[in-house]
Amino acid sequence: WGWLADVLGVPHSGPVVSFLPIILIGVLFGLAMDYEVFLVSGMREEWAHTGRARQSVVDGARHSVRVVTAAALIMFTVFAGFFPLDDSLIKPIAFALAVGVAIDAFAVRMTLVPAVLALAGRGAWWLPAWLDRILPDLDVEGSSLQKTAPAERKEPEPVS
């Protein structure tokens, strides 16, 4: 429709580039999953240590929000850097990616996801027993080491 065409420096409105949705979904999905891993892994680590659902979301988000903010601002700036180009093929892709990163990182990942996890409480970290038996135990945080008794732990032999 040509809204904001003069502000963005777009000479005329036209159809969407045919491969724009494919590129947009691929790049934004990849970035969104990175942001999600940064945020939720910190929250999960706090949950494994404390067992307090709401406080784990708050503390995990507090520790991860700087990384996600920096990454989102960097990607927004990179994509927005292509706005001044006069190429009618590049400009809509850059605009869509910049706006998509901003909305996804700030509205979805740093607002909606923590809110839903906080509302879900302990249910956010619940896993059915039958699924827990099937899935491999990827103990990245080392929480199983903390649960074993000190007498059961094997101390490494000194190297001489």
Rank of each mutant, 00 (worst) to 15 (best):
I22K: 01
I22D: 05
I22S: 05
L24F: 02
L24H: 01
V27D: 02
V27K: 05
L28I: 13
L28E: 07
L28F: 05
F29M: 11
F29K: 09
L31Q: 07
A32M: 05
D34I: 11
Y35P: 02
V37E: 13
V37H: 14
F38Q: 14
L39V: 15
V40M: 07
V40F: 12
S41L: 06
S41V: 06
S41I: 03
G42V: 06
M43H: 02
R44V: 10
E45P: 00
E46N: 04
W47S: 00
W47R: 06
A48C: 00
A48F: 00
H49F: 05
H49M: 03
H49Y: 01
H49W: 01
T50D: 02
T50H: 08
T50K: 04
R52A: 13
R52I: 06
R54T: 12
R54P: 02
R54Y: 09
Q55M: 15
V57Y: 10
D59W: 04
G60W: 06
A61W: 14
R62E: 14
H63A: 14
H63F: 08
H63D: 06
S64V: 12
R66Q: 14
V68R: 09
T69W: 10
A70T: 13
A71I: 06
A71W: 03
A71M: 09
A72T: 01
L73F: 12
L73H: 03
M75L: 09
M75N: 14
F76T: 11
